[in-house]
């Protein structure tokens, strides 16, 4: 589904990704771990097509198609979803109104019928249950005055509504207390399916106790320096990132 080969990317003239390779097949859950500043969010943003991140080498194939030159909205409509590390606030724009516009833009793109207000509400309510989010919160302006945990929960709610094919979750676990983490994780688990792939970006292995990955990759200085099964996360937790970095340098 996703095949990244020798990816190089620059931000503000500085090279952050320095030859990254990654392959994800349908139904798989991959965790990408790495110390702060190693380029995890950069990778997420580059996949989503953010324009201030310049791809200077390599390629990203998504369902066999090269993503180069495709706008963020077209990538989203093709099924790529990014749960943001820092979701933004948009004052005055109701979350539900926004999501309905997004859902319908995606449906339209796929040549499917759009949902009217009634159908959308019914559909969205089912998804709210999944993340134990109340409707009042969902109707407020996007993320305005939301707590850190509510913002993350809202990201997963949006993911559930938009039903993407590739889910990239950027540090969805950070800033969550254990109860919120459990809710978010069960929401994510409910979305696992044989057609859907997930990329879990995280700094800690805590999240991986709740969402068990098929593969774990370690990102260091813009490259995947190690890949393995879920036990790699534990090993990493035990020995720390310094161990990997030394290892990689060696």
């Amino acid at each position: 589904m996703l095949k990244i080969t020798n990816l190089h990317a620059k931000v503000e003239g500085r090279e952050i990704l320095k030859g990254l390779d990654l392959e994800v097949r349908p139904g798989e859950v991959h965790a990408v771990m790495g110390p702060n500043g190693s380029g995890k969010s950069t990778l997420a943003n580059v996949i989503a097509g953010r324009e201030d991140y310049e791809v200077t080498g390599g390629e990203i194939l998504y369902r066999g198609e090269n993503l180069a030159g495709l706008s963020p909205e077209d990538r989203a409509r093709d099924g790529i979803f990014l749960a943001f590390q820092y979701p933004v606030e948009i004052p005055g724009v109701s979350n539900m109104y926004f999501l309905k516009a997004a859902k319908n833009a995606i449906l339209r793109h796929r040549g499917e019928d759009e949902l009217d207000a009634v159908d959308f509400l019914e559909f969205a309510r089912r998804k709210l249950k999944l993340v134990e989010m109340n409707e009042e919160l969902a109707n407020r302006p996007i993320n305005e005055g939301f707590s850190g945990g509510e913002k993350k929960r809202n990201e997963i709610f949006q993911m559930a509504v938009l039903e993407p094919t590739l889910c990239v979750l950027d540090e969805t676990d950070s800033g969550l207390d254990i109860d919120a983490l459990r809710v978010v994780a069960s929401g994510v688990n409910a979305l696992r399916s044989p057609e859907r792939a997930m990329l879990l970006i995280t700094h800690y292995q805590r999240l991986l106790e709740y969402i068990v990955p098929d593969f774990v990759h370690v990102l260091s200085d813009g490259r995947i320096v190690r890949s393995g099964g879920k036990e790699l996360a534990l090993e990493l937790e035990e020995k720390g990132y310094a161990w990997i970095e030394e290892h990689a340098a060696a």
């Binding site: 989503a48 953010r50 909205e73 989203a76 948009i90 005055g92 724009v93 926004f98 833009a105 938009l162």
Partner: peptide
């Protein structure tokens, strides 16, 4: 914000619609 625009576009909303939404939200 570029961040606001990117957030909307990442959800599948076109750039023009995103600007319109943000402006209308501001004026609500």
């Amino acid at each position: 914000g570029e961040d606001q625009l990117f957030y909307c576009r990442q959800r599948g909303i076109s750039e023009e619609d995103a600007i319109s939404m943000i402006v209308n939200g501001f004026c609500k």
